[in-house]
Structure formats: structure tokens, C-alpha cells
Design a protein around this nucleic acid. Sequence first.
RNA 1: GGGCGAUUAGCUCAGUUGGUUAGAGCACCUGCAUGACGCGCAGGGGGUCGGGGGUUCGAAUCCCUCAUCGCCCACCA
Length: 834
Amino acid sequence: MSPVPDKPTLDGLERKWAARWSADGTFTFDRTKRRAEIFSIDTPPPTVSGSLHMGSVFGYAQTDAIARYRRMRGDEVFYPMGWDDNGLPTERRVQNFYGVRCDPTIPYDPDAPIPDAPGDGQTPVSRQAFIELCHKLTAEDEQAFEHLWRTLGLSVDWSLTYATIDDRSRRVAQRAFLRNLARGEAYATDAPTLWDIDFQSAVAQAELEDREQQSAYHRVAFRGSAGPVFIETTRPELIPSCVALVANPDDDRYRPLVGGSVRTPLFDVEVPVHAHPLADPEKGSGIAMICTFGDTTDVTWWRELDLPVRTVIQRDGRFQATRPEWLATGPWEELAGKTAKQAKRRIVELLTESGDLEGEPRPITHPVKFFEKGDRPLEIVTSRQWYIRNGGRDDALRAALLARGEELRWHPPFMKVRYDHWVNGLNGDWLISRQRFFGVPIPVWYPVRDDGTVDHDEPIVPSEIDLPVDPSSDPAPGYDESQRGKPDGFIGDPDVMDTWATSSLSPQIACGWIDDDDLFERTFPMDLRPQGPEIIRTWLFSSVVRANFEHGSLPWRDTTINGWVLDPDRKKMSKSIGNVITPMPLLEEFGADAIRYWACRGAPGTDTAADKNVMKVGRRLAIKVLNVSKFVLGLGAGAGGEVTEALDRSMLAQLDAAVASATSALDAYDYTRALDAIETFFWHFCDDYVELVKGRAYNEGAGADSAKAALALALSTLQRALAPFLAYATEEAWSWWKDGSVHRQPWPSPTGIDGDPLVLDAAADALAQVRKAKTEAKVSLRAPVDEARVTDTAERIAALRHAESDLRDAGAIALLTLADGEPGVEVALAPAAP
RNA sequence: GGGCGAUUAGCUCAGUUGGUUAGAGCACCUGCAUGACGCGCAGGGGGUCGGGGGUUCGAAUCCCUCAUCGCCCACCA
């Protein structure tokens, strides 16, 4: 306990109590508890390579309120934090920050200088040096995040922190992958893949976004035996890639052509004309050219019509330098080495000169697929990639994963349809390999045959005990490093896994799967997955996929999906608009409790504006907690005694109702409704009950004892009920009269004291009328009243009689009369003193 | 094109099975030195519940439709 200060303040509470919680191990997880006693939370590992923003604190503060509530309910809360530091965002940040670029062909030299300060330029560094820089920068970012989380007051056990690139995570990710591989759930195949030409990597369906782009239909003539056949295309530069034309089987205009062939303009390549139901008679001219590959429909046609591959665009987005073997004639040299954009411009000129372009290109706007973090449209290239089955090609698996979605308890429930839509809309398996560097390596090697060719069909895998491995620097089992790349030797798979292939295993990483069976048994499957709505299709879904394969269960029982944070004008915050609000200045201006309050006022799943006015209200509430605690303690609350007075029992009955309402709301993860119930009662308590009872409490005797006992009970209850939200102010006020942390106290249970809620309500209403009379007369609330006459229903008057003397005290009323009748209060003020 | 959510006072939001005169906070206005709180306290004004239909004795609440905002999805010829 510490003395009540003369002037309570919120300033400095974060620093004071964060240090104390850390020193006392207030939130340390006790791993001796049984599974039934534990509440485990699969905290989202934030991407540390980004800047901190309000969205970062919003969901975490809400989850922390739940965590603190569960802890007070007696659960041992398993609440680890992770950092998502692996992957492309980190690489990009490192490239920009240090001015470097990873060149895996450079051999690692431990003595080579590597930048250690911000720089610009494109200094090439070895793969290992690049990875070291990634580790270095993320370590700094992680400190900034931890500082923010500690200031905000997250009650995580910081000794349980993991990072998605650390040894433990790499071991889990590789082990899970190898088990997927052994069971046939992971496989590699050569197939057309969406490809980002800037990042030089394949990307997955979940990472796509459509962007509206300006384009134009070009009406181009193919030569048919019975005259020209016009197609309309937005990508005329792909004419050298054309492998067929396609029309709808029911389209009478083109039926005569189907089964025959036409010749491409400029290059004079003979291509067949096919029929396929996917061809839309309404689009363009109704007959389309199929190229390998212009878009994903091309891929479908190519596969279903069994067409050849004629790729001209390389992985860097440029047309290949050498003339493709299927182009016997035509102006290939005009296109070689050009980007798709440059080639389009040139080919339009060539088509115009040859007379194969009819009319002017017709401008349109249409959606084009981009990598969500990319700058140029995706191309489709054929490459060998690793996949994990996700139901995109398998109806039984899809149904099983949809059933997992049913089994999961969603808060709020409407978020579940996003999962269903995503799973139903999958059109392929999950592509997990990335041609990048800072990630978990695909843990396989391949034998090199005696002729120097690579045997991809017989991958060499490590034993689980040796994980994590890096096939780029570790030799394959049974081989010596000197055999790397040699005939009869081996090569390592050069790819890394996508970030989601690791973070989808966050429950397994956090709970110690295989590495710590004892912990795993006590924490998995977890209780709660809190997360944002935009990553249902990635993080949530992929986590369900992995747990379904590995454990035959859900990874957790419940999921809470938080809303989106909008700017004060309810616009989406984005860097380009420049309306991004950063949390640290707000934490300093209003205090952590105010920010926590703001976050918890945002209902589950509801988009919420970053509104300073709400933070101000939270700050006011926190200050009030300090002040009313000081006052109530100054009245001598807690001196013991029995609650005998009807007014006191009435207040406690109302308090019990508020707590009961908050309890059921929190059990359903509705922290907003809980906060509202307690907050509403709290102000009623301060403004009405404390005012009515303070006179009696100053006196002595049974009435005073009753008041003091009731005040102590209420104060203890309110401090505890507000603790999940106002973590600091409640802890501070609790320390003035109790030992131990309020956050380790039991959540309030009913006081068990019967009372009639009407007594306090009737007294508060009558007091309000007396106050109104004084305010309208523009006199002090302490001004004496000669006579007040309260009339009301018999029931309310009967209730009021129990609080008659308190009302007289609080209103400074000389003569108070109560009578049945029409509701009303007549107040005769004493004449003003001269 | 499809889906989900939102639309209530100037602003931010409650309003949980349809039921007396639709609530709160902020802001605004008018007051008040009061045993803690002036980062306070008391009181007040302010809303045809997005528009239009419908069901019902009765609709902010249920149904249909339209509009606006946000998010998600969709095969880009």
C-alpha cells in the first residue's frame, strides 16, 4: 500500500506500473496449471517492418481487456507476443534503409564491409550479409513495438516472445512442411504462376489485389481461309504468344471456324480455333486469342484445351532476346528485350503499318491483378513451385475446411461469411515458395545426376532432429559441402517459404509443439485467436489448414475479429492520403488508459474513428477513478460494519446488476457492452450515491458504519470491474488501500446484499429536482432550502422515505415533506443572505 | 457483377426477442467556489432515427427497394 496523494494524477502512471508489473512478474504465466485452468491467446505477431499506427493498438487493447478479465476470473492466461519479421516487407525496408540489394551470387565474406547506417544506392551484398542486415533492423523495430505495447499496458508475458524468423519458428515451420510433404499435403510442380516482375517472385492468390487500370481494346485481324477474323485485345504485344483462338460453342458467328485454323498477324503462325463455354460472346468481338499467358483465363483454356506453351515474357518482365523457335517470320527483333509496355507500343505501330489493326484503339478501364505490395501488373510465368493443399482443387478437403469454419466460434458471427466466401472462391492450392531471401528456407535438397542435371523428383529431406536447416549453406544429409552443384552431388532448394507458411503455425510455435510437449499439452488447441478482418483469408484460413492437417482439429475455439480504424472523418487511413495517426503522441497526450478506453469503445468487428473526443472521455473517467477513490477513502470507507441502510443496499443492488451485465458481456467477448455497463453505473455512483451519503458517512453510528461499509464494497468492486479497461488508474487507486495488484484480484462477484434499486433512483431523481431549482435560481448547490415538497406515486414515495434524511442532507433542505400524488417537486429556497 | 457491415442530435456512438414522451458523451448555451475532482459540478437547448414503399393496433427495430460510405470477393479476351 502507498499513501493517497494530495493531488492524484495520471501522469507517470504508465512508467511506474509497467516497471512494477515487470519486476513483480504480475503477468508471468504459471505453466504448472492444467489445461482446464488455462486460457491461451494466439496473439497476432505484428509485422515489425512497418510503422506503428492506430490500427496496431486498437485490436491489441481490446484483446488485453479480455485477457485481464480472464485472469481475474481465475484463468491462468497464456498470452505470448510474437514478431512477424520474416518476409518481403522486411527485405524491402532493409533495401531502402541501408541502400543495399541482395545478390545471391556473391559469396559470403565475413570480413566484407556491410553498411551499418542508412544509405542510398543499390550496393550489392551477399545473401548472408543481407540476412544479417534484416536481423539487425528488425531487432530495432521490435524494441520500438515492445515499448509501445508496454506503454499501452498489454498484460503479455514477455518471456514467451517469439519471432517468425527465429530458430524455434524456423524449426516448427520446416517440420510442419516436411510432415505435409510426407503425407502428400505439400508438393512441388511446374505450372503457370502469378509472378511479380519487380520482386522476382511468385505470389499466392491470397496476396492479390485488383486495381483499376486504363487500357484499350485493339481490334486485330487474324487471317482465316474465308477472310479476316477480328479479335479484340488489351494486350496486342502477346500476339507472338498466341496459341489459339476461342469462341463460345453456342456462338453461331464463329461456329464455322471452330476446328479450323487461322494465321496470326505479323508473325503468320497457324493457330487452331477452339470452342469453350468460358468464351463470352458479349465481350469484345466474341472471339478471343489465347496467349501463354495473358491472364488466368488463358491458363484455364490452356489447361483444358491442352495447348502448347509459348512464353515470350521473361521473369524480369522483358521480352526474351532470342527469337522464339515457333516464330519463323515476323519482326521479332523489334520486340526483343523490351518491357511489355514498350513492346505494346511498338507492336501497335507494326500492326498499323501492316493494316492488321482496324480503327483506333478503344479506351477502357478494367481491373488488373497486382501483388498487393507490388507496383506493376503481375505476369504469369511457368515455374516450379511448392504448394500446400488447401481445398482449392479438392472438394472433400474444401468441405472439411468449411466445416472447421462452422466449428469455430466467430465474434462477431457475421465475420464467418468472409471465411466461407474465401474458401469457396479458391481456384488453386496454396503457393508457399518465394524466390526471396529473408524467410524460412524450404528444407529440401535435390540430387545432381552424373550428367549434371537435377533430379527434382527425389528431394532429399533432413531429419526432424536437425532442424532448422538452410539448404543454401548446409550440405544435404549424406553429402559433403564440396559436392554442392557437382555431378553426383546435390543442390539446395533456393527458395524460402512465404511468411504465412510460418505465421500459420503461430499456435504451434507459441505452444511449443514437439519442442515442449508439456507446454503444448497445457495450451493447445488455444482458446482465442484475435485478429483483423483483412487477414481472415490469409492468417486465419492458413492456420486452420495447418492445424487441420497436423492435429485434426481447430487451432483455437474462438476468434474475435476487430474492426478497422478510420481517421476522424471516417475515411480510411493511408499513407498516400497523409491522414495516418500514430499512437505514441496520443498515448503521451491522453495517457494509456484513455487510449485503451477508446479502443474498447469500438464494438467488436465495428469500424471505429480515431476520435480524440472519445480519448478525452476516457481520460476524464480515469481521473474520476482516482479522485472518487481518494474521496471515498477519505470518508473512512472500509472501517468495517454492516450494510443496514436501505439506500446503501439499493446502491449495491444496482451495482450487482451492472456487474452481472458486464460479466455476461465479457464472457461473450463483448468488452464494449461490459465497459458501458460499468461506466454508466460508475458515474451514477459518483454523482448521486456519493453525494447523498457523504453527510451520513461523516457522522458516527450505525448509519455511518453502513455507509462506510457500502462505499468500501462499491469502491473495491468498481476498481476491479474497471481494471481490464483502465489498467493504470485502477492499479494506482487500488494501491492506496489494498495489497497486491488489482489485476490479480478476483473479478467481482455479487455482493449478495438484497436491496431495492428504487430507493436510490427515487432519491437521485428528487435530488436532481432540488439541484435544478438551485441552478435555475443561479445559486450554489449548497444554498439552503427552506422547504421542499416531493410528490410521486405511492411506491416511489415509500421508497424515498428510506432515504429521507440523506436527501435532506444532500439538498441542504430544512423541511422535507413527502406525499403521494402527481410526480413533482416544489422547492422554496431560503432568502439569499444580504 | 456478387457479398458483408454501416447510415439515429453539429460530432462520436448506445438503443439485444417491435411496446409509454428515442438515450449518452463531446461540442454549444446558462449557472455554481462545494469537505475528492475547474482535466470539476449542476442545469438547458438540440433528432420527421438516409429516401421511398410495405407488414402491424403499434416500426429506429421486421420485409422490399433505392441511395451513400467502408471492406471483401469476381475469368483482366
